[in-house]
Amino acid sequence: MGHVVSRRFILAAGGALVAASAQAQTARPKVKIGLLRSLYDVGIGLADSRSYFAAEGIDVELYPFSDTAEGSQALAVGAIDAVTQGISGGLLNLMARGVEAKIVASAGEHAPGHGVIGLVIRRELVDSGRFKGPADLKGLKLALGQNAPPHWLVKKYGDAAGIGRRDVELVSTGIGNVLPAMINKAIDGACLLEPYASELIRRTDAVRVVSMDQVQPNFPAGYLMFGPSLVTRNHDAGERLLRGYLRGVKDYRDAFDRSGDKEAVVRDLRSRQVNVATDMVSVGFPEDMAPSTAHVDAFIAWQMEVGVLKTKPDISSFIANDQRAAALQAVGGRI
Rank of each mutant, 00 (worst) to 15 (best):
D59Y: 03
V60Y: 04
V60R: 02
V60S: 06
E61R: 00
E61V: 03
L62V: 07
L62N: 01
Y63P: 00
Y63E: 01
P64Y: 10
P64F: 14
P64A: 10
P64T: 08
F65L: 02
F65N: 00
F65W: 07
F65T: 01
F65C: 01
S66Q: 09
S66D: 07
S66N: 12
S66F: 08
S66A: 14
D67I: 08
D67R: 14
D67P: 04
D67L: 13
T68N: 15
T68L: 11
T68S: 14
T68E: 15
T68F: 11
A69C: 07
E70K: 01
E70Y: 03
G71C: 07
G71P: 00
G71N: 10
G71T: 07
S72F: 05
S72H: 12
Q73N: 14
Q73K: 12
Q73P: 00
Q73L: 09
A74K: 00
A74S: 06
A74M: 06
L75Q: 04
L75Y: 04
A76F: 08
A76E: 14
A76R: 07
A76T: 09
V77F: 15
V77H: 13
V77G: 04
V77T: 11
G78C: 06
G78P: 08
G78R: 00
G78N: 05
A79P: 02
A79L: 08
A79E: 15
I80D: 12
I80C: 09
D81W: 04
D81V: 09
D81A: 08
D81C: 06
A82N: 01
A82P: 05
A82M: 10
A82E: 00
A82R: 00
V83E: 12
V83M: 08
V83Q: 03
V83I: 14
T84P: 02
T84W: 06
Q85W: 06
Q85D: 12
Q85V: 01
G86I: 05
G86H: 14
G86A: 08
G86N: 15
I87F: 06
I87Q: 05
I87M: 03
I87P: 04
I87V: 03
I87D: 11
I87S: 07
S88I: 00
G89Y: 10
G89A: 07
G89N: 07
G89V: 02
G90Q: 13
G90K: 09
L91Y: 11
L91N: 09
L92A: 06
L92Y: 15
L92S: 10
L92R: 13
L92K: 09
N93V: 06
N93G: 11
N93H: 15
N93W: 12
L94T: 05
L94H: 12
M95R: 13
M95T: 07
M95I: 02
A96M: 05
A96H: 03
R97L: 10
R97D: 15
R97G: 10
R97P: 08
R97T: 14
G98F: 02
G98R: 14
G98A: 13
G98K: 10
V99L: 09
V99S: 13
V99F: 07
V99W: 11
E100W: 11
E100D: 14
E100N: 12
A101S: 13
K102Y: 01
K102H: 03
I103T: 04
I103Q: 05
V104W: 01
V104D: 00
V104A: 03
A105P: 08
A105G: 09
A105L: 12
A105Y: 02
